[in-house]
C-alpha cells in the first residue's frame, strides 16, 4: 500500500525506509511480536520465582485448559479485526451453541448430532452478523452488541433455568485429563492446529492479502477487485462456527451447560486479539502475535491467582495490558496526530 512509484529497485527500498507510515527507527528493530516474546519470558520468570510449581506439567495443563476456548474464539476474531470490523457476540454464541447442544442432548439426540446442530446454529448466528455488517453495511460494533444480547436471550429461552448434565464421560474427560502422553488440554491442542491453518491463510494466501487490503483501505480493495462484502460475510460465518466449537468444548469441559455459560468472555477474547498486536483500525496483525498473547494472558492470570493477588487487582493488570497494547503499537500514529494538532494550534482563526 506504500505509494511505490519509482522504477529503480534501490530507490524503492530507500523510499520505503524513509517513509513507511512514518515509523521511527526503533519500531522497525523492535517488532510487537518480539516485545511479546520478552513479555512472555518475563511472565514465566516472574511466575516461577513467586511460585515453585509454576513451570510444572499440571500447571501447564491448567493454563491450557482455562485458555483453550478463549483462544479458539480469538482466531476468527483476529481476521475480523484485521478487516477493521469487530465481533462482540462471540461469548454469547458460545453460550447459545452450548445451550442448543445441551438441550438437544437432553431431548434424546445423540451427542454427536447435538454437536452438529450446535455448529449449524453457530453458522446461522455468524451469517446473521455477516448479513447485517457486510451486506447491509451496518457498523459491526452496534450489530454485534445487539447479537451479544440476542444470542444470550435465545439461550435463556432454550434452557433457563435448567442445567444440563450427563454428557458421556468419554467426552467430558477432556476437562480433566490432558491429551494422552502430553500435558496439553484438548481445546488448546485444537487451538494450536487451527492457529497454524489461520496463520497460513492470513500470511501466505491471496485471501489473507485481501483481508489485509480490506483493513488498510476498503475502497481501494474494492476497486482492485477484492470482494469485500463476501469476505467479511464469510469471516463472520467462520467466527460463528468456531465460537460454536468453543461452546461444545466448554460444555464438555464443564460436563454441564446452563444458559449463562461463558458470560463476559468476549472481553478476554478482544483483549487477547489486541494484545497480540492486531490493530483495532484494521490491516495490521499476525497470528503468532495472538498465540503469544494467549500464552501470556494464561500464564499471568494463573500466576496472579496462585499468588493470591486479589481479583480486582488482576482486573487492573489486565485492563492496563489492554491499554498498553492499544497505545504502544499506535504510538507512531498518535505522535503524528498530536504534532499535526500542534501545527494547527498556533494558527488562529485567520
Amino acid at each position: 500500500m506504500t505509494p511505490d512509484i519509482t522504477t529503480k529497485p534501490s530507490e524503492t527500498v530507500s523510499y520505503r525506509g524513509a517513509d513507511d507510515g512514518g515509523q521511527p527507527l526503533w519500531r522497525k528493530l523492535v517488532r510487537w511480536e518480539t516485545a511479546l516474546v520478552f513479555v512472555l519470558i518475563a511472565v514465566l520468570i516472574f511466575g516461577s520465582a513467586k511460585e515453585s510449581g509454576f513451570l510444572d506439567g499440571t500447571n501447564f495443563f491448567y493454563i491450557s485448559l482455562n485458555m483453550g476456548e478463549i483462544a479458539i474464539m480469538a482466531l476468527p476474531l483476529t481476521l475480523i479485526v484485521m478487516t477493521g470490523e469487530i465481533d462482540l457476540s462471540v461469548a454469547s454464541m458460545l453460550g447459545l451453541s452450548g445451550t442448543v447442544m445441551g438441550s438437544l442432548f437432553h431431548d434424546g439426540w445423540s451427542v454427536w448430532a447435538a454437536m452438529a446442530a450446535a455448529l449449524l446454529v453457530g453458522a446461522a448466528g455468524g451469517a446473521l452478523n455477516g448479513l447485517l455488517v457486510a451486506k447491509m453495511g451496518l457498523p459491526s460494533i452496534a450489530v454485534t452488541i445487539g447479537t451479544l444480547t440476542l444470542f444470550r436471550g435465545l439461550a435463556e429461552i432454550v434452557l433457563a433455568p435448567r442445567t444440563i448434565t450427563g454428557f458421556p464421560i468419554s467426552l467430558t474427560k477432556i476437562g480433566v485429563v490432558p491429551v494422552q502422553g502430553t500435558k496439553i488440554a484438548w481445546s488448546a491442542l485444537i487451538f494450536l492446529v487451527l492457529a497454524i491453518i489461520f496463520g497460513v491463510v492470513l500470511h501466505a494466501t491471496a485471501l489473507g492479502r485481501s483481508i489485509v487490503a480490506i483493513g488498510l483501505q476498503p475502497e481501494a480493495a474494492r476497486f482492485s477487485g477484492v470482494r469485500v462484502d463476501r469476505i467479511k460475510f464469510g469471516l463472520y460465518v467462520v467466527s460463528g462456527v468456531f465460537c460454536a466449537l468453543a461452546g461444545i468444548l466448554f460444555t464438555l469441559k464443564n460436563s454441564s451447560v446452563s444458559y449463562d455459560a461463558g458470560t463476559g468472555l468476549e472481553l478476554n477474547v478482544v483483549a487477547i486479539v489486541l494484545l497480540g498486536g492486531v490493530s483495532i483500525f484494521g490491516g495490521r496483525g499476525t497470528v503468532i502475535g495472538v498465540v503469544l498473547a494467549v500464552v501470556i494472558v494464561g500464564c499471568l492470570q494463573q500466576a496472579l491467582t496462585q499468588m493470591g493477588v486479589q481479583p480486582e487487582v488482576q482486573n487492573i493488570v489486565t485492563g492496563s495490558l489492554l491499554l498498553v497494547s492499544v497505545l504502544v503499537p499506535n504510538s507512531g500514529e498518535l505522535v503524528r496526530r498530536i504534532r499535526a494538532r500542534r501545527r494547527r494550534g498556533p494558527v488562529p482563526a485567520a
Partner: peptide, 22 residues
C-alpha cells in the same frame, strides 16, 4: 486463603480450585 473472581461465574472460580490443588 480466600480466592475467587469478581464476576459470579464458574469460569472465575475454576482457577481458584486449581490453585488449591497446586
Amino acid at each position: 486463603v480466600v480466592s475467587s473472581g469478581t464476576a459470579d461465574t464458574a469460569a472465575a472460580q475454576i482457577p481458584s480450585i486449581q490453585t488449591a490443588i497446586q
